[in-house]
């Protein structure tokens, strides 16, 4: 067993790691920034400007997105009792991606109150997919996990096909822009993006944090959860909407950044066990930290270019996860 004090220690370590990475990551770059200049808040100083106006918002955005995606993945893995579930399993990212692809294909360019049109289209696409999946699941009595999952997967494939169709119809430049968007990125670099994303992540995480006991029971199966006194369909609906809206918000602003939502909850389960009262904060902290680190790598690996962060997450995350899994360090829980 991982006794409570040990789990608390791991949580504390994750907090320290998150703080260190959040503080250190904006400084990481092929050309080092001058810390003295940054701390003096020098007006017009290039290093200060890069740090405060570009890097810090980007790092905050990465942390929020990573935390939200990881917590979303954790919630869906509990609901579906399936280790392969991701925050994108129910089609919200495909819907959002279709929205973004449609925007690119239509060749329009607009923004509302500073919010880019592509994000608006993506959010509408994501919301449509959420409503479609929900309505289809409701058609069958009981809001069952199997129907929800199958409806989500079907809608996901449907939107993916529409994206391919649009790419086929569109010009090569459209295809490239769509493909680039699908790789996921943290290119929105002003603090406004952070403030736009914050309510989605905050609302999603708070809703799920209120349901940690229910998430624990769901991992034991619907029958035991019902027998313990949980209203399973109602709880699943709340988790579905809370997670999907949070993920829809993230995908609209950052694109469908893969891998974080699937693997981070597994890594955290190996670290702190399956109890969501500890697992949720651990996943939140590690998810955020992980994406900030990946973003730092994406900025630093090749000078004068930024690799899309969605490429980096699996490229470095998968070997790390496999090392954890196969090293036997956490064999008790795995």
């Amino acid at each position: 067993m991982k006794p409570a004090p040990k789990r608390k220690k791991i949580l504390l370590l994750l907090v320290i790691l998150a703080v260190l990475v959040l503080a250190g990551s904006p400084l990481l770059a092929p050309t080092p920034l001058s810390i003295g200049e940054i701390l003096r808040f020098e007006k017009g100083g290039l290093d200060a400007q890069i740090f405060w106006d570009l890097r810090l918002p980007r790092v905050c955005l990465a942390f929020l997105a990573g935390a939200g995606l990881a917590v979303g993945g954790m919630a869906f893995q509990a609901v579906f009792r399936n280790p392969l579930a991701t925050p994108f399993t129910l089609g919200v990212s495909s819907g959002a991606s279709f929205g973004a692809a449609l925007y690119v294909y239509l060749g329009i360019a607009f923004s509302v109150l500073g919010l880019p049109g592509v994000s608006i289209f993506a959010f509408i696409g994501g919301t449509c997919s959420i409503l479609l999946v929900y309505s289809l699941t409701r058609l069958k009595q009981g809001f069952t996990t199997a129907t929800l999952l199958l409806a989500g997967v079907a809608i996901s494939f449907f939107f993916s096909s529409l994206i391919l169709f649009i790419q086929y119809l569109g010009r090569v430049t459209h295809s490239f822009r769509i493909l680039r968007w699908l790789m996921g990125g943290l290119d929105a670099v002003e603090f406004d993006s952070v403030l736009r994303l914050l309510p989605f992540v905050l609302a999603g995480v708070i809703a799920l944090a209120c349901l940690v006991r229910e998430l624990n029971l769901l991992t034991l199966g619907d029958e035991i959860a019902t027998a313990r006194g949980m209203h399973v369909p109602r709880t699943k609906k709340i988790i579905f909407f809370a997670t999907s809206l949070m993920v829809g918000g993230i995908v609209s602003l950052c694109g469908p950044i893969g891998f974080v939502g699937m693997i981070v909850p597994h890594i955290c389960r190996l670290l702190v066990g399956p109890d969501h009262r500890v697992l949720l904060p651990a996943t939140l902290l590690f998810g955020g930290t992980f994406l900030v680190l990946c973003d730092a790598l994406s900025r630093s690996l090749i000078a004068e270019t930024m690799i899309p962060v969605g490429v980096i997450t699996a490229l470095f995350g998968a070997p790390f996860f496999l090392w954890l899994l196969l090293s036997g360090v956490f064999s008790e829980r795995s």
């Binding site: 067993m1 624990n216 991992t219 034991l220 027998a227 066990g273 399956p274 109890d275 795995s334």
Partner: peptide, 11 residues
């Protein structure tokens, strides 16, 4: 229940 389910690693 019948108890044939695979359960997570709770104590």
């Amino acid at each position: 229940p019948q108890g044939v389910e695979i359960l997570p690693a709770f104590t």
